[in-house]
């Protein structure tokens, strides 16, 4: 049974159809990638699924329950977590604190207990700190733990966001271009990390421009163009689909051609 079902999701901005009637499913342990040219509506789709935009129509079902329009912090409680295309890091906090922030739901207690520094508050914070250290180790950032997050490289921040999202122990994880701006080595690290997380049974929805990465790790592809789903299937089938080649790979070929000329 699918963990996340998207059913006919649509949204308009000022009369422009940004996403129109998109449906697909995501099972536990599966990696599904949403691909498509720039402006195809991938990030908008993510924003609707993660409760940041309210869809115009359609439904988001999480584990059989309708969660359409449910606020992001409540989705987090239900086990849906995400990263962002344009980094959303807590810049003024240390790397470790950013990771601990991911434990908010687990360490959260009463504000008065925190104010008085009661043992219960300290105990929760300690548990979260230990968990965060382990996660930083996992994404290879433990040496930077005490640095201010703003000082890290782009690739490192991408990994920090993944660590923060993993801290929630999500059942569904949305990754918006996790490898953007990363070098080959970093991309491979992220690649391994994603595959590993999926093996643990987390359903992963991925937006990524690095086609090699997408083809390598995805179980299933969903292709968007101008806000509509034009194809889906396993990577081998989709890459042979003439519509996809025309819409997506075609534009990329054009881009590459123009780059080659200039």
């Amino acid at each position: 049974m699918s963990l996340l079902s998207i059913e006919g999701l649509s949204i308009e901005f000022g009369g422009v159809r940004a996403v129109h009637d998109v449906s697909f499913n995501l099972k536990a342990g599966e990696i599904v990638s949403v691909i498509g040219p720039n402006g195809a509506g991938k990030t908008t789709l993510f924003n609707m699924i993660s409760g940041i935009y309210l869809p115009g129509s359609g439904k988001v079902m999480l584990d059989g329950e309708d969660v359409t329009g449910v606020a992001p912090h409540l989705l987090a409680r239900r086990g849906l977590s995400r990263t962002f295309q344009n980094l959303q890091i807590f810049q003024q906090m240390t790397v470790l604190e950013n990771a601990i922030a991911g434990y908010h739901l687990k360490e959260g207690g009463h504000v008065l207990a925190d104010m008085l520094n009661l043992p219960s508050s300290r105990k929760r914070a300690k548990a979260a700190t230990e968990g965060a250290h382990a996660l930083l180790e996992r994404v290879g950032l433990s040496r930077a733990a005490e640095q201010e997050a703003g000082n890290l490289s782009y690739g490192a921040l991408k990994r920090l966001e993944i660590a923060r999202a993993l801290a929630l122990s999500p059942r569904v994880l949305l990754l918006d271009e996790p490898a953007a701006g990363c070098n080959a080595v970093e991309t491979e690290e992220i690649d391994n990390l994603i595959a590993e997380v999926a093996r643990e049974g987390v359903a992963i929805l991925l937006v990524e421009h690095d086609m090699k990465l997408v083809m390598r790790i995805s179980n299933h592809l969903v292709v968007l163009d101008h806000g509509e789903k034009i194809a889906e299937g396993d990577p081998a089938t989709v890459s042979q689909n003439p519509d996809v080649i025309a819409a997506y790979l075609g534009t990329q070929a054009e881009e590459e051609a123009s780059h080659a000329h200039s």
Binding site: I52, H73, F84, F90, M93, H104, L105, G108, A125
Partner: peptide, 24 residues
């Protein structure tokens, strides 16, 4: 340095990211 203080500083840094880690 408490859980509450971290959540405050998180929403100060990025409200949308704070929401996605479950901060009300």
């Amino acid at each position: 340095n408490s859980p509450t203080g971290r959540a405050w500083r998180a929403l100060h840094g990025s409200e949308v990211a704070a929401r996605t880690v479950g901060v009300d």
